[in-house]
Amino acid sequence: MTILAVNAGSSTLKFALYPVREAVAGSATLAGSIEGLDLNGQLLMSWRIKEQVFKSQIEALSGDPFREALQALQGVLQRELAGRDLQAVAHRVVHGGEAYRDAVRVNRSVVEALSRLSALAPLHQPHNIEGILAFGRAFPDVPQIACFDTAFHAGIPEVEHLFALPQALVRQGIRRYGFHGLSYQYVMETLNRLSDRAQGRVVMAHLGNGASLCATLNGKSCATTMGFSALDGLMMGTRSGSLDAGVVLHLMSQGWDHARLQDLLYRQSGLLGVSGISGDMRTLRASHEAQAQLAIRMFTHRVIRETGAMAACLRGIDVLAFTGGIGEHDGALRAEVCDSLAFLGITLDHQKNSVDTGAQAVSLHRSGSPVEVWMVPTDEGRVAAQAAAAVLPMQL
């Protein structure tokens, strides 16, 4: 019996097959991703089966790269699922709002409720829903399970989740939700296996095209940088991150409408907006352009600043963990963040930090460091598979 985990992000579509009996701790029997979902990107699908790696260029003909990616993935899965008993498709869904704090089997009313949250996560939620509908059509007899990024932060303290707004707006559900919860749950579970300090004061940094920080105490989220939407907090690939609301009011006074503002803040800002070159950190690292270097410095500065804020919420820090595409592979950024936060007791082992360990979690701190530093490759799919296995009445 197998569970398919699907993670439709803002720039990639990730997928993995997990044996049901091993959904908690086992490795995926098939895992891969499709990159280039951003506008004008080149679609490349790569996947791994045991030790074999396969790659395929996807020809985008319709002008809708996400739809093309889904169709290509379904073709691969139809072949690979031959002879397997597919029990469920577990979907990462970015926003669950106030209604969904646990994984849920999807029906029409769930889809309608999640669709109403699309304006709060326009880069993700529509893709999440489209994936649910597409796989529902491809596998009509297989349960579709929605697993929510917001769930990990559902219990954050009142002083953290409330905004300084009138109560009438709070009652409408305008509050801090927080995101990247599936990733943070996986990293926390990994740290619990590797470190005696994981139940202490932990700051996790999920750094990728979307980026956020999360502070945990006793394994529970108590502060995070993202808020009501996935726009708040750190500077990101194409998102602005935290921005004085007065800027939006100013642009509105100049005639900017909702669609133009949304495009600016979600798709034209961040690393892309500052550099004028790309929202991909790898591309900017390879560039000698002054604006590319400025974008990197700004991104790094925001991570340093907000990590300090997370440590302040915790009254100190015992563990700092990096994950996400940038957090896992950009040793230069990790070094600058850790060196800038040395006053908190962080002492990085630069030799360890310079080695890319790929899929292996690794400690990066020096022996005797008051603060542990870890790089933990995330696996949101496995967490989604766990949640789906818990929702369904399966015979494990």
Rank of each mutant, 00 (worst) to 15 (best):
R175Y: 06
R175K: 14
Y177M: 13
G178R: 01
G178T: 08
H180W: 01
H180S: 01
S183W: 04
Y184M: 03
Y186Q: 01
V187A: 01
M188F: 06
T190K: 14
R193C: 12
R193K: 11
L194E: 15
A198Q: 04
A198L: 11
G200H: 05
G200F: 02
V203N: 00
V203G: 00
A205N: 09
L207A: 06
L207G: 07
L207S: 04
N209P: 13
N209V: 04
S212A: 03
S212T: 01
S212G: 11
L213R: 00
L213D: 01
C214G: 02
T216L: 12
N218M: 04
K220E: 11
G227K: 05
L234W: 03
L234Q: 03
M236L: 03
T238K: 03
G241R: 06
S242G: 15
S242Q: 10
D244P: 08
A245M: 14
A245E: 07
V247C: 14
L249A: 11
H250M: 09
H250A: 13
H250T: 11
H250E: 15
M252G: 13
G255V: 13
G255D: 09
D257Q: 12
H258D: 13
H258N: 08
A259P: 11
A259N: 15
A259F: 07
L261M: 13
D263E: 15
L264N: 13
L264E: 14
Y266S: 14
V274P: 03
S275Y: 09
I277C: 08
G279T: 07
G279A: 09
M281Y: 10
R282Q: 08
T283A: 15
L284R: 10
L284M: 09
A286W: 05
E289M: 11
A292W: 08
Q293N: 06
L294F: 07
L294M: 13
L294T: 14
I296R: 15
R297M: 09
R297D: 10
M298D: 04
M298K: 14
M298V: 08
F299L: 03
V303K: 00
I304L: 02
T307E: 00
A309L: 03
A311W: 00
C313K: 03
L314P: 06
R315H: 11
I317Y: 00
